[in-house]
Design a protein around this nucleic acid. Sequence first.
RNA 1: CGGGGUGUAGCGCAGUUGGCCAGCGCACCGCGUUUGGGACGCGGGGGUCGGCGGUUCAAGUCCGCCCACCCCGACCA
Length: 477
Amino acid sequence: MAEDRLPKQSENFSEWYNQLILKSELADYAPVRGCMVVRPYGWALWENIQKALDTRFKKTGHVNAAFPLLIPMSFLEKEKEHVEGFAPELAIVTIGGGEKLEEPLVVRPTSETIIGYMYSKWIKSYRDLPILINQWANVVRWEMRTRLFLRTLEFYWQEGHTAHETAQEAEDETLKILNLYTDFAINEAAVPVIPGIKSDAEKFAGAQRSYTIEAMMLDTKALQSGTSHNLGQNFAKAFDIQYLDRNNEQQYAWTTSWGVSTRFVGAIIMTHGDDQGLILPPKLAPSQIVIVPIFRNDEEKEKVMTMVGEVENALNQFRIKVDNRENLTPGFKFNDWEMRGVPLRIEIGPKDVANQNVVVSQRDIPGKAGKLFLPMVDLAKNIEKLLNDLQDRLLKKATEFRDSHIFEPKNFNEFKEVIVNGWAYSYWCGDASCENSIKDETKATTRCRPLGQEKTSGTCIYCGKPADYKTYFARSY
RNA sequence: CGGGGUGUAGCGCAGUUGGCCAGCGCACCGCGUUUGGGACGCGGGGGUCGGCGGUUCAAGUCCGCCCACCCCGACCA
């Protein structure tokens, strides 16, 4: 068995990322350019993400439904900004059943339009509001430049679509979801994110306001990891979503939409991974624990496997896997599971049978330093603590990394220096021209203006005009 | 769509001035010995050499066209 190492993060981060996904069997390239196959290990991770989000959606009163993949072209055209934003990346079906179609059908790039159409049918009165629907779906956007999980032609996501009586309710919903996403990212994925508002240039095509959670990857690039849009009455007017209000007058509804995609898998990979491979947060890892049995002969095997069974049983509350592949050495398995990011590894050999303890190795602490002996007594309780501690350490480490790479440059020259290896938190006057110039000169875009920021007075990092708020700038995925 | 690169076994590659049945490492299969940090020996299976056309007695090898994918840019969850 030959060593087949990953490139080092420090030497070639993007190759590290690509190869790790293939080797750890999260995903593979499909025969169509830009499309990916999410393999069982990757899908299991996505399913855990889905569960964590879906539970939160349900708790806040949302319900799931399914809307069609194909949308009449004319629907897209009803909202001006929306069609302008999406036109370049549409896949369009022109032939069906061997016949040219009267009207082309668009493979959904997102579902605001078709859901808007349905909402206009369903909503008659204020009594029908709010309507809070989510769907788990795939969407297609014809991207020029693709990257596994981060940007593929087809990707999987959830898209929530809600309609409300008042502007305030819609805004409350938009922010409620942003907070929900923030809570999910931090407390389930241990991905520290900064919630904030997007600039006009970066907002969703057709939205009044877009909010985002922004995460810093280990190469210091920013990754937009979830978005929540207040659509105002834009789509309600385009699709005639009207209701009779409490004063018996016709009103347009106020709508929102929000989504998290399989891109989030990329966020997890690039937030926690190291040169050895993935490090998955215990709360989302497909396997939280892997047991590697060690033995030299049948006699030892029998004793060891008996104990493996006992341990597996004692830990059945966790997602646990026994690696009983017989043709591989323990050493190989150690490296293999480390590459796949399993948080805890339990090693059980003849010595452990004799001592009635197990060796536990913690994925985020390399080598011997991360290994400890645990007695069989209270094993589950101790393992639970180790998983929780590991989860906490991941969040702490990622947060410290992020905070140590956010700078507040004093002038634009300094800005250009820090942006190469970090984010800049700077005053910005809000003019699109400054935003554009900064992008042209540094490749950095505005990421968001964080929520809850107090108004202060400063000067724009680019033009020097007065500015009231600071904005995060970064190179991004 | 512009610039660059690569197509030979599942993966990574070699294949000289064109020349015999197209090779190597890993992976895979069989047997045996191994197994506490990426095991070893022996024996096997696996190829329209990206496609089409041309030059030639003879083409992975030379020529032309096409296709695909990867990397770097413009657009984007």
